[in-house]
Amino acid sequence: MKSKIVLFILAFLVWSLLNWVPDWQHLVVGVFVSIFVAYMTGDLFIQRPYVLRHPLRYWYFITSYIPVFLWECFKANIDVAYRVIHPRLPINPGIVKVKTSLKADTALTFLANSITLTPGTLSVDIDREKGILYVHWIDVKVKDIESATKLIVERFENILKKIFE
């Protein structure tokens, strides 16, 4: 039920932003559409609604996750652009295994997305029981699981643990 209410609020917000500047006709239709969406798919949206209640999590999300993410994303673009326009194409690709200690769905999704948008790495598959991510790395520096974990995952894991666990 809580998950449905959260989804209703979010859907209504997106509807109002899509219909900017909102007037009352748009808002009335938006209420009906949001109720329909929340009724049909609400149970799939959030597993643990109580996580949303802590203001500290939003604070960590805004102050520590977003700046790190934007900076890494920018570095990733410079890195790929350098590799692409270099005449000898300096790549050394491969798929490595990394470990993660995160358990929650949202945290794992954010971790995989962050890995994909950080320099040189692309998450390929995940093994939830063992907590293993398979990561395609465009420039493999180390092959064993421990040091690869240190290089790829650790930047984000501590931040995400504070936000989502």
């Binding site: 673009n77 790929v80 652009a81 692409v84 790549i91 798929i95 948008l117 395609h136």
Partner: peptide
């Protein structure tokens, strides 16, 4: 533009995905 050059120059599907996701997302 760099992302598109990467799509042409890089060798296999995984490397091409790297160029496509990163450059095209931020671009």
């Amino acid at each position: 533009l760099f992302g598109c050059i990467g799509l042409v120059r890089l060798p296999d599907v995984y490397n091409r995905l790297q160029a496509a996701t990163k450059c095209v997302t931020l671009g």
